Amino acid sequence: MREDRLIEIAPQYGLRLSSPGLLLAQRRFASTQPVTPADEIAILNNQREKRPTSPHLAIYQPQLTWIASGFNRLTGVALSGVLYGASLLYLLHPVFPAIDSAHLIQLAHDMPIWLKGGVKLLFAIPFTFHTFNGMRHLGWDMGKGLTLKATYASGYTVLAATAVSSIYLAFFV
């Protein structure tokens, strides 16, 4: 097709030529108009309301790997929070004289055995899980146990070690 013929038929099909022989782009058939920033936000919010939401985790089958990973993060945050909270509480001893070692020891001594064991178990489970899962992650950092079979084996080992050591710490120490 000759160049002059292209120049003649290009406007019919909504095409522009930037220079003779150079086809640039198709003409827009949608009209545009200036929009205020407030209208832009309203349009955007309207589009977001109509957008479908992702099903996120509900469509996935629970797996040991991501449950253990999430629980490891939760136990880390919980243990850190308890440590900081207890430290701040202990620093408040001058303001609240009832918070000292002697009173805390007497409180623990006066608890019934079942309550004492339950409280110890409540602290032992996240502590032992976080410890054993941290050792598992250190192994992964060294390049050990990265196959799928080894990952699941180490995950079940962490769960078993957590159960045994938590019960031991709560009721036999």
Rank of each mutant, 00 (worst) to 15 (best):
Q26F: 05
L107F: 14
D141E: 08
H137Q: 14
M142Y: 11
N72M: 15
F123Q: 01
F172V: 08
I41K: 14
F123R: 02
W140R: 13
L91W: 05
L104V: 15
L107A: 12
V158P: 01
V35D: 03
Y13R: 09
A170L: 00
A25T: 15
Y168Q: 09
G70Y: 07
L121I: 03
Y60N: 04
P34H: 04
Q33D: 05
Q61G: 04
R73I: 13
G21H: 00
F132G: 01
A150Q: 15
S19I: 08
L89V: 07
V77P: 02
K120M: 11
A10P: 00
F132C: 02
A86P: 00
L122Q: 03
G85R: 03
T157A: 15
G145C: 02
R2T: 06
L88W: 12
G139V: 01
S80G: 14
I9R: 09
W114G: 00
M142D: 04
Y90N: 12
L15Y: 05
L44K: 11
Q63N: 13
K120L: 13
G139P: 00
L169S: 02
S80D: 04
G143T: 00
A163I: 14
H130F: 10
A86R: 05
S54K: 10
L23R: 07
L17P: 01
S18L: 12
G143V: 02
M135L: 11
P11R: 05
Q47L: 15
P126M: 06
L88N: 08
L89N: 12
I41D: 10
